[in-house]
Amino acid sequence: KTVHVNGVQYDFDNPEQAERFAKEMAKKAGLQIQFHGDQIKIE
């Protein structure tokens, strides 16, 4: 899974790890999470 945070890309082999990371980042920055198939976007 790939997580995009403000244009920066983070790759994870483990989907659960990717989602946990995305939730942490979104919570910290007060941003929205969008799921697009294999990609998670935080903007």
Rank of each mutant, 00 (worst) to 15 (best):
G37E: 08
K1T: 13
Q34Y: 13
H36T: 10
V3W: 04
R20C: 15
P15F: 13
P15I: 12
Q32P: 05
M25F: 09
K28M: 12
P15S: 12
I33K: 02
K1E: 02
N14Q: 03
D11V: 14
D11K: 14
T2V: 08
N14G: 03
K27I: 12
Q9H: 06
K41H: 14
G7P: 01
N14A: 03
Q32L: 11
I33H: 03
A26Q: 03
K28W: 13
R20Q: 12
D38L: 10
K1I: 14
K23F: 13
Q39F: 12
F21E: 01
A22S: 03
H4S: 09
I40P: 05
D13L: 06
V8M: 08
Q34W: 12
F35I: 11
M25C: 15
F12K: 01
P15C: 14
E24Q: 08
D11G: 04
V8Y: 07
I40V: 06
E16L: 07
G7V: 02
Y10G: 00
D38A: 09
Q39N: 09
A26N: 04
G30E: 06
Q34R: 10
D38N: 09
M25H: 02
I40K: 03
E19V: 14
L31R: 02
K23P: 00
A22E: 01
M25Y: 13
Q17T: 07
K27G: 10
P15G: 06
G37Q: 08
G30W: 09
I33T: 03
K27E: 12
E43L: 12
G30D: 07
F21G: 00
E16Q: 09
Q9G: 03
E19T: 10
F35L: 09
A29K: 11
Q17N: 05
H36R: 11
V8F: 07
M25Q: 07
K1C: 15
I40T: 04
V8D: 02
G37W: 07
F21L: 01
F21A: 01
F35R: 09
P15H: 11
V5K: 02
T2R: 07
M25E: 07
G30H: 08
D11M: 13
A18F: 06
P15A: 13
F12R: 00
Q9F: 06
H4W: 15
A26Y: 06
I42T: 06
A18K: 00
D11S: 13
Q34A: 09
F21R: 00
K27Y: 13
Q32H: 09
N14V: 03
A29P: 10
E43W: 14
V8C: 15
I42P: 07
V5Y: 14
A26S: 05
K23S: 07
F21H: 00
L31M: 11
K27H: 11
L31C: 15
A18D: 00
L31Y: 10
H36I: 13
Y10W: 05
D11P: 03
V5W: 14
K1P: 05
T2N: 02
F12L: 07
E43M: 11
F35S: 05
D13N: 05
G30A: 08
K23L: 14
I33M: 06
F12T: 01
F12C: 10
V3C: 11
K23V: 09
A29F: 15
K1D: 02
G30F: 07
I33Y: 06
G7H: 02
A26I: 04
V3P: 01
F35N: 05
V8R: 11
K27N: 12
A22Q: 02
A29G: 07
E19H: 12
Q39E: 10
D13G: 03
Q34N: 10
K27F: 13
Q39I: 14
V5E: 00
V8W: 07
G37D: 08
V5F: 14
I40C: 14
Q32R: 10
A26T: 02
I33W: 04
G30S: 06
E16V: 07
E19D: 07
A22K: 04
F35Q: 06
D13A: 07
H36W: 14
I42Y: 06
D38E: 09
E24L: 13
V5H: 06
I40W: 07
P15D: 09
K41I: 15
E24M: 13
Q39D: 10
A26P: 00
G7M: 03
P15T: 10
I42A: 05
D13K: 04
Q9P: 09
K28I: 14
M25L: 11
I33S: 04
H4D: 04
R20P: 00
E16F: 09
I40D: 05
T2H: 10
D13Q: 05
A22L: 10
E19G: 03
K27P: 01
F35C: 13
M25I: 10
H36S: 10
E24S: 08
G7C: 11
E19W: 15
K23Q: 12
I42W: 05
Q34S: 13
F12D: 00
A26E: 04
Q34P: 03
E24Y: 14
E19S: 08
E43D: 09
H4G: 02
A18T: 01
D11I: 14
G30I: 04
Y10D: 00
L31S: 06
K23A: 10
E16P: 00
D13Y: 02
Q17C: 15
K1M: 14
A18R: 04
A18Q: 01
F21Y: 04
I40Y: 06
G37K: 08
K41R: 12
G7R: 03
P15R: 11
D13V: 04
R20V: 08
N14Y: 04
E19C: 15
A29L: 15
Y10N: 00
Q9C: 15
Q39W: 11
Q39P: 07
N14F: 04
A18I: 02
E24F: 13
D13M: 06
I42Q: 04
A29T: 14
A29H: 15
H36A: 11
Q34V: 14
K27S: 12
H36D: 12
R20M: 12
I40F: 06
V3S: 01
I33A: 04
V3R: 02
T2E: 01
K1N: 09
T2C: 14
H36L: 13
R20H: 09
Y10I: 03
T2M: 05
K1A: 10
D13P: 07
Y10M: 02
Q17E: 14
G30Y: 05
Q17W: 04
K28Y: 13
V8E: 03
Q32T: 12
H36M: 13
E43N: 08
F12M: 03
G37C: 11
A29V: 09
K41Q: 09
I40G: 05
N6F: 14
D13S: 08
L31E: 03
N6Y: 09
K41V: 14
I42C: 14
H4V: 14
Q32C: 15
K41P: 06
Q9M: 09
L31N: 08
Q17S: 09
A18H: 00
R20T: 10
Q32S: 12
D38R: 02
F35D: 05
V3E: 01
N6K: 05
V8K: 10
K1H: 12
A18G: 01
Q9N: 04
A26R: 05
M25V: 09
K41E: 08
I40N: 05
R20Y: 09
T2P: 02
Y10V: 02
Q9T: 12
M25S: 02
I42G: 06
R20W: 11
A26K: 03
F21D: 00
A22I: 11
K1G: 04
I33G: 03
K1L: 13
N6D: 08
A18C: 08
V5R: 02
A26F: 07
K23C: 15
Q34M: 12
K23W: 13
M25N: 01
K28N: 08
G30K: 03
E19A: 12
P15V: 11
E16C: 14
Y10L: 01
K41C: 15
G30R: 03
A29W: 15
D13F: 03
G7L: 02
F21V: 00
Q17P: 00
E16A: 09
Q34T: 13
Q9R: 14
H36P: 06
V3Y: 05
N6G: 08
P15W: 14
N14K: 04
I33N: 04
G30T: 04
H4I: 14
I42M: 08
F35K: 06
A29R: 10
G37N: 08
H4L: 14
G7I: 02
D38S: 09
V3I: 06
N14W: 03
Q17R: 02
A26C: 14
Y10F: 09
Q17A: 12
G30L: 05
L31H: 05
Q17H: 04
K41D: 08
Q32W: 04
N14P: 00
V5M: 11
K27L: 14
K23N: 07
A26L: 08
I40R: 01
G37Y: 07
G7S: 04
V3T: 01
K27Q: 12
L31D: 03
Q39C: 15
Q34F: 13
E19R: 14
G37T: 07
M25T: 03
H36K: 10
K27W: 11
A18M: 03
L31G: 07
A18E: 00
Q32D: 07
E24C: 15
Q39G: 10
F12A: 01
Y10C: 10
V5S: 01
Q32E: 10
N6L: 12
E43A: 08
E19I: 15
N14S: 13
A18P: 00
L31V: 11
